[in-house]
Design a protein around this nucleic acid. Structure first.
Lengths: 337, 337
DNA sequence: TTTAGTTACGTAAACGTTTACGTAAACCGC
DNA sequence: GCGGTTTACGTAAACGTTTACGTAACTAAA
């Protein structure tokens, strides 16, 4: 038998209301009874049942996180940030892995509703009308992470993808490169696809380097395999390329591996810059130069925002994090020749 | 206002008991009322509140997972297996990241108790007496994953570490290597440390290759940095080594990177075999040969076991998964010279 | 001394379910 | 057509909390 508030009340000779008041330190009890009750609680090893609490308070101290691919290493750091912060707030996280599948997403949203989560963090994907309407009906706060909605006004945290892609490209240019190609993810992707391509093109234009759309080849996603497949296509089209901007670190590693297979030396014959700065960027050979998103911090911030919305019941400012290129060894400085 | 069972009952002109019965298909209602009620449910978009349910049924359809390092890529696949399986069972997961910290672990256990999880999966770490006692008091099922307890009889799923290490070492030997070193994790670690060292030593002995304990150097953990640091130490002690068995893929990648820095070519001058077969094993240069644990399957199995224990309220057989070396390109066949 | 206000509680309703128990009607066998 | 069983419900208690409301005792002001 588990110990309930009643047991505590009985043993301490008070009512359950008093115990509850002490537990939630609401006014209405004397120092002495507090001491007595606290002793009994300690003695019995009582801990309030958070389910019963949740039933009344409508707070479950649980938040839901929706993300497309749990396996993506990108999300790893982000989730770490979310979970650490959530736990620091005395809550816990339910992670839902939608695989970018609309039906699955709706199922998960229903699950999160049933479980009465206090709030939802929606990541890395376009917020469809259907999702939005559902969450709106739930009347729970939501924040967007690594994505942004042009249709609905929901607070978000992300980096400026176009700007970051611009920075990466510019870095290559400043290192003396002129023949630069790009391997992008899905260009239909309005949030991580197109903007990065735009940033690339914009940098090239700004520095008056002629580019055609053939300089960027796209795959469906941002994975290692995508890079592996895309690189040979790109290099065949443009054998004179000296540098490549990859839209993700995983793609970049795919490029490096493919280049290795083709006996093209990185960075001597080909420079590569990635995007994200995930863990494995440092593990590649050569270590990957990349433009970093502060992934952990972004997860942290999104979580803080959710809690602010939950607790103060008001909306909150979006936040654009700044990116930063971290130099390692996959880009050659052509000026030093 | 949210829609409750009362609303459904009123609109369908039945009692809440009947609605509940229909929802849980317990006997006691006619086809007609069922149809009627189902219609109303659909019409109102009613979904039962799982918190209220949990309060009575003592089932929250939530399980807790304790793991030492969320960032470890190892755990990624495992967690995927756990979460997929859990969701298929209509439940959800709370992931707790203990950092191998006893105090934190106890806090998380308390959290899981408060949240009334139906069961606990405890991974990759020694089950301390304190933890065991706590869970025992909770009276909830637990299974061990990638670990095993010699003190308490708890069902587990893992691979046979010693055997797998033996297999890895034997693979190297069969490829003609005789000067083999090992980089292990923490040898104090009774579950992932010592057994792998034993397996290594055992294989060497079986093939009558002299080894000293100096052939194995240990670090605190199983990370990339550990491999990076350990390799120079090892190679300085034994410059004639032709192959290395790394106790994890991350260590192996560290070894490859360190070797690259020292201008030692893998696999031409040095062969490396890893352990785990995580995602990035295929991304390294050269792609890493490694002994694979079926990580996803192990997560899946552990979850199935937990659910069986929860639902049938009985204990369950432990399961040892078989390992397998996956050949890639980081080991040179010396016989072919 | 009376009155108004405060303090320190206790009682009971509420949160949204499940379920033990009760009951009236229908059915069955003889 | 009578006892007994089954079917199809309804009523109300229970799960473990929080909290609105009530109240008795004490305090302070007039």
């Amino acid at each position: 038998m588990t110990i309930t508030i009643k047991d505590v009340a009985k043993k301490a000779n008070v009512s359950i209301a008093t115990v509850s008041r002490i537990l939630n330190n609401k006014p209405g009890y004397s120092k002495e009874t507090e001491k007595k009750v606290l002793e009994v609680i300690d003695e019995l090893g009582y801990h309030p049942n958070s389910i019963a609490r949740g039933l009344i308070s409508k707070r479950t101290h649980t938040i839901g996180v929706l993300l497309p691919k749990i396996s993506s290493m990108l999300m790893n750091e982000v989730i770490r940030g979310i979970e650490d912060t959530t736990h620091q707030n005395g809550s816990s996280v339910i992670v839902c892995h939608t695989e970018s599948n609309g039906q699955k997403t709706m199922q998960y949203l229903q699950l999160l509703k049933d479980k009465q989560v206090d709030g939802i963090i929606f990541t890395s994907e376009r917020l469809k009308e259907e999702y939005y309407q559902f969450v709106k009906k739930m009347e729970k706060p939501m924040v967007l992470l690594s994505t942004e909605s042009y249709d609905f006004s929901i607070p978000f945290v992300k980096v400026n993808d176009q700007h970051a892609a611009y920075t990466a490209t510019e870095y290559l240019i400043k290192k003396g490169h002129r023949n630069i190609g790009m391997i992008s993810g899905n260009p239909e992707d309005q949030v991580a696809g197109q903007p990065r391509i735009n940033g690339f093109l914009q940098a090239m234009n700004n520095y008056q380097i002629p580019v055609s759309h053939e300089h960027v080849v796209s795959e469906d996603g941002f994975s290692f395999e995508d890079g592996l497949k895309a690189f040979p296509r790109l290099i065949r089209q443009h054998p004179d390329l000296t540098a490549i901007f990859a839209a993700s670190d995983e793609i970049a590693l795919g490029v490096i591996s493919a280049a290795y297979e083709m006996n093209i030396k990185v960075p001597d014959q080909l420079s590569v810059i990635g995007y994200d700065n995930i863990n494995i960027a440092q593990m590649s050979i050569p270590p990957l130069t990349t433009v970093a998103q502060p992934l952990y911090d972004m997860g942290e911030k999104a979580t803080e925002m959710i809690f602010e919305m939950i607790e103060k019941n008001q909306t909150v400012e979006s936040r654009i994090f700044s990116h930063q290129v971290v130099e390692r060894k996959s880009v050659k400085d052509l000026n030093k020749e």
